[in-house]
Design a protein around this nucleic acid. Structure first.
Lengths: 213, 213
DNA sequence: CTATTAAGAGGATTAATTTCCTGTTATTCT
DNA sequence: AGAATAACAGGAAATTAATCCTCTTAATAG
């Protein structure tokens, strides 16, 4: 929760941190100097006036302040959650991914054989990358493309997903439908048919979150 | 720093956390159900619309979410948006990119108006990101997707590119052919025709190197 | 001390966000 | 399968935030 005064006090504190008045801060942010006037924070009617997120964005940009640091000013305490660092995530080729020993039962990367590439945190410690080979995923993904997969991301219809079958195949397709008993996958490539699998034939399915082009 | 789409994604995430749609979240917060419609996040003019801090306050109140937790949703999004490895790169909406003043003569981002997000080094100090709106780039890119563009990357046939015309239009297409006098671009969407431009009608063309999914 | 500039009060105007509204599509319930 | 309800697109109207403006007070420079 956040109150009207907490936001305005945070703006005041931000100005102070940079040795500015609030009209100076507004000017530096490209806003009118009177935008943050104290006299405009509560209207004659008693209604509290709240700045827009755009104005907040502009003052953070002008002072090179992160949103977490602004939160510290708002709440007066350190923002929770450490700043995630970009970290190495495992990468392997699609051609290898289907063979044994690279994925645990729930679709997380295990074992040796994985290379690592650096990628910013996608909010999932188990994220990994796959390198595309062959033409079965054209025109979306072509040989040499890297896709980043997040097992933790929620999967919905229309999403592009990686699916591992019980037979050991690893596929990238678009999920067109998921019912209680089966999934339907659209192949982007007319040379390859659309697929339907009963859920019991699927080991796991995970959403693709980034792709190189 | 905080970007337009980070705020909107955080609102989407908050709804998801409470098993709500964004119209359900708005209603629960005492706002109009259409307040957070995706169709209202970018205006027809290309202007990005930002919610007020009052609306943010109301949704946090309605879900008993702290401002720190909201900050985690804002910053703990997909890799883009984290201050991590790699450097901040400029990001702007496609809808705005075509209007004046955002690109220099050679296709490098210039001027005010750009937000910044962090992305691993793509080997190009002038790399930037564009946020997709509308449906003209489907099925490859959908509204809300982020694409990362590298002016320094070599462009070859078959690559996905961003092109700026002399008329001021910014397009993402696939380069099918480049001759000494013209380029041919394939539209992935049958509702939009393939295009041919004489080179003199093109300000610049740059390769897309990453895309969120 | 005086002149100049910055800050800020507060009203009017403009621009932006939210609400209201109609309609279509999707989802849920029976 | 059909009915009811929710979600959401998107335009118009209402409300709210920012800008423009005039003026007074405070701070700074000379």
């Amino acid at each position: 929760m956040v109150t009207h005064w907490q936001i305005w006090k945070a703006i005041d504190k931000l100005a102070e941190l940079y040795s500015l008045s609030v009209s100076g801060l507004a000017k530096q942010a490209g806003l009118d100097p009177t935008t943050f006037n104290k006299s405009k924070r509560v209207l004659p009617s008693g209604k509290e006036r709240w700045p827009s997120m755009e104005s907040i964005s502009k003052i953070l940009e002008a002072t090179q302040t992160s949103f977490e640091d602004f939160t510290t000013l708002v709440t007066g305490q350190a923002a929770i959650g450490k700043e995630s660092q970009g970290k190495p995530i495992p990468v392997i080729g699609f051609a290898q991914a289907g063979t044994g020993g690279f994925f645990g039962d729930s679709g997380f990367p295990v074992g040796a054989g994985w290379d690592h590439v650096s990628f910013p945190d996608v909010g999932d410690d188990n994220a990994y990358a796959l390198e595309v080979s062959g033409d079965s995923m054209e025109p979306f993904y072509r040989a040499g493309d890297i896709i980043v997969v997040s097992p933790a991301a929620e999967v919905r219809r229309g999403d592009r997903v990686v699916v591992k079958t019980r037979e050991g195949e690893v596929l990238a397709k678009q999920l067109t439908r998921k019912t209680a008993s089966r999934i339907e996958l659209h192949s982007w490539n007319a040379s390859h048919p659309d697929l339907v699998f009963p859920l019991e034939e699927i080991d796991w399915m995970a959403r693709i979150v980034w792709a190189s082009q």
